[in-house]
């Protein structure tokens, strides 16, 4: 029984000593300000990272868009040449239009994704505390949509546009 009293006494003493500095700190007026400053600095760092990420994505998007347009423009020239030679280009023409609409979707989805990143970068530290992770999840979801668009464009080229061009080779119009 006496041992139990001693043990309880020791626990109370330990708790009292450990809680004392925290209680004293809470009362200090500068602590809250320092925490705010630290939060502000940390958030500014994240904002800068997001801006860099946006710049990198913009560069990638531009590269993709230019590449797709260049390939489409070349295929269109081939199409016009083949049409003039009497080839049946109706399927290639139709598929090129479909492919073009996929570029437009990619561009729209990309804009939605970048708008979300810009929205996150524009948050105040206080706003970020409440909604950063939810918005980041949404940005990641939008990024997946963009990536899927890129995969669709690539696959459509490989399986459809390319096949259409190869089919042209199998045709033998009289004027060719």
């Amino acid at each position: 029984m006496r041992r139990a009293f001693i043990l309880v006494g020791m626990v109370v003493a330990v708790l009292a000593f450990s809680a004392a500095p925290a209680l004293a700190q809470e009362g200090q007026p500068g602590t809250e300000t320092r925490l705010q400053e630290r939060l502000q600095e940390r958030w500014e760092l994240v904002q800068k990272r997001i801006e860099l990420i946006i710049a990198r994505f913009n560069n990638n998007q531009q590269r993709h868009q230019e590449t797709y347009e260049r390939v489409r423009s070349t295929v269109e020239e081939l199409l016009e040449w083949a049409r003039a030679k009497g080839y049946d280009v109706s399927k290639l023409e139709q598929d090129l239009n479909t492919w073009g609409s996929m570029f437009a979707k990619f561009s729209q989805d990309y804009q939605a994704f970048i708008r979300k990143l810009e929205e996150i970068a524009g948050l105040s530290p206080e706003q970020a505390k409440g909604s950063f992770y939810a918005m980041l999840r949404e940005a990641r979801r939008l990024l997946q949509v963009v990536r899927q668009d890129v995969m669709d464009i690539r696959l459509f080229y490989q399986q459809t546009i390319r096949a259409d061009i190869q089919d042209l080779k199998e045709q033998f119009p009289e004027s060719a």
């Binding site: 590449t67 963009v146 995969m151 080229y157």
Partner: peptide, 13 residues
């Protein structure tokens, strides 16, 4: 055209 298309990757996103 193949080479040009392969010059960009879904991994960019």
């Amino acid at each position: 055209l193949d080479r040009t298309m392969e010059s960009v990757s879904p991994e960019d996103f």
